[in-house]
Design a protein around this nucleic acid. Structure first.
Lengths: 352, 352
DNA sequence: ATATCATGATGAACCGATTCAAAAAAATGT
DNA sequence: ACATTTTTTTGAATCGGTTCATCATGATAT
């Protein structure tokens, strides 16, 4: 149980200065080949394990890691197909830049704050949090580059978001073209707390999650242009879990049987809707048309296959990671484009 | 752009020793309330951001993070449903213990070695690597607790594995009961390199991945007992990607049309097989019966639903994380049990 | 009034490297 | 042979905390 062998021990044993020993490991080109080999030999002789990671970090100030912060529940993040894609993209960029990715994990808010405070990282990536939040404050206090994904945080170095307004507008336009007139909007949760169920005008006016706000606005703009009244649209706030949405949709259709178009803010929600509609024997797209947002892989395998406004979440994650690691301020949010993916849940005759 | 405020600056400004200032942050109960509040006030006055993470790490020797090492391609890890479940379990335990999880990411082997060397973690979790590998050597050299998942690594602190032999045996027994007599085994890749396609006896004898070795042995043991010859079994080594398996299975059935039972080493492979069989209009389970291993969620939604030997991957990940963070040596591998999940791909009349 | 005990505060040692200006050595030019 | 330049090596300073033995103070017991 001898003590750890340190660089200084190696240096002494090899009869060189500590600076030279350090260079032998970190900047080989600065040390004469012959001498370097001798140092390395002595090191391995002594059982030196290489420079101590934390000591190096302290001295250089670089952690070689990117912190990734997901909202409260990590388990949820690892269940949501979109979050997974995001992670794929982040991972891709991290690998490219030879940086590790630190997933900040916590069971509750308080723990999350300390997790943020204890994370040895060079930058933070924040997904989906709204601004007024002690976790965000903790991150801000670290004074490191911080990039928001799908959320606009005050003080963020950069922000990467989907063109949510246009995406939602596209979805609404599509359902109108497919003949829908009586709409339901299945919303993602509107704020940190989430009040699931019917969304009244007051609730719709106090949405703190950017994504929800923008998508609502996009839907409404198009439907209003088509002469519909927002007050006639059924709004329901859903948890992003197919199972839950399924029963919510069954209840919704019982209360509003004339609904013929469902705008879902995520594919997970849309899939839950399809399941609920199937439960009550409601024909899709015959009686009700459904369109989601995201374009997840599973949407291609539902019955009927899900029409969706697709986004490239992998690329979104990659770009965000790139910006975070670059660390430069980017004033304007990076806006990613969407693409309408027409499949069977909106129309029987997919156009071009 | 003043320099960072240090603890010593706070101490001086507050007129206390550095030790006391440190305690005010780290061990509040050791400092008189009044004094502590004063120190905190001075700190916030000066704009102190709290103790420097890396400095603390260096001094305490604790990183507060668990390193997770996945085989070469991270993107693959984030696509494989089983790996995701594993991550869920790891994340759960990390959250419980207030530790972050560091995903070691790399584009290639060389980079992976340096990623391992630069990771500030307290322990490593290794998934699915076989032993003879420079990445494993790098981890070993770090001299930290290292837990192998689904792999037995020499020098591991602990090992968590599925009862692969018994699981495979269960699958084979089930297909025999369902009436299959001419078997194909769709194997996971046998070693780091992977030689996809027909697996001859030589290849079967030199499998380095533990999982594959054990599962092969389990299948064979049961089939031999049933009087079948291993030589008559068609063995195919597959990449763990449904798309690829799909075409491999189409080709396989063309060459060996009398196959009536498919033993797939993973559900992803099994699902690919189902797709391939559907492509050629082969009736499942009428003509060919299929059983996978893993019990992934998607298996419930295939047509027909996939029979599988299920494992609890979330729990596997959780246990592995727990052992890694505990850091104590556990000589015997922790063996997790499997459970046969009979659905429609093996028999028309699912028994109890 | 003195001995005993907690409790709070101190300050120097230490964690283990990297860095950089300056010195030494080697190479090059004239 | 000497001046100049380039390449190597040195050694001390620094990164920013935590720890722990020791000292000071006040409280409790005898």
């Amino acid at each position: 149980m001898g003590k750890r062998v340190r660089l200084v021990d190696v240096a002494r044993a090899a009869g060189v200065s500590q600076g030279t020993a350090s260079n032998a490991f970190g900047k080989p080109q600065l040390v004469r080949d012959e001498l370097r080999e001798k140092i390395l030999a002595v090191a391995s002789e002594l059982g030196y394990r290489g420079p101590h990671v934390m000591a190096r970090m302290l001295r250089t100030g670089k952690a070689g890691a990117l912190g990734v912060v997901f909202p409260d529940n990590l388990e949820y993040a690892f269940s949501d197909p979109v979050a997974i894609e995001l992670l794929r993209g982040i991972g891709r960029e991290c690998a490219r830049q030879a940086v590790n990715m630190m997933i900040i994990s916590a069971e509750n808010h308080e723990q999350a704050v300390s997790a943020v405070n204890n994370a040895a990282v060079d930058a933070f990536l924040v997904h989906c949090y709204s601004d007024d939040n002690d976790i965000i404050s903790a991150i801000r206090r670290r004074n490191l580059p911080m990039v928001g994904i799908d959320t606009d945080i005050v003080g963020a170095t950069a922000t990467v978001v989907l063109d949510d307004f246009e995406g939602a507008a596209t979805a609404a336009r599509h359902l109108l073209e497919c003949g829908a007139r009586k709409f339901a909007i299945l919303s993602l949760q509107a704020d940190e707390a989430g009040q699931f169920g019917l969304m009244d005008a007051r609730r719709r006016g106090s949405v703190s999650h950017r994504v929800v706000r923008e998508r609502l606005a996009g839907y409404h703009a198009v439907l209003r242009d088509a002469g519909l009244s927002v007050a006639d649209i059924v709004h329901i706030e859903c948890e992003n879990l197919s199972e839950n949405v399924r029963s919510q949709v069954v209840a919704m259709m019982a209360e509003f049987p004339d609904i013929d178009g469902i705008l879902a803010m995520s594919d997970v929600i849309a899939i839950g809707a399809l399941e609920g509609l199937a439960d009550i024997g409601c024909a899709v797209p015959g009686q009700v048309r459904v369109v989601g947002i995201d374009g997840v892989a599973r949407g291609a395998r539902t019955t009927p296959p899900l029409t969706s406004v697709a986004q490239n979440s992998v690329e979104k994650g990659r770009i965000a990671a790139e910006l975070a690691l670059a660390g430069e301020n980017v004033a304007e949010p990076v806006l990613l484009k969407t693409r309408l993916l027409v499949r069977g849940s909106s129309t029987d005759t997919p156009a071009s």
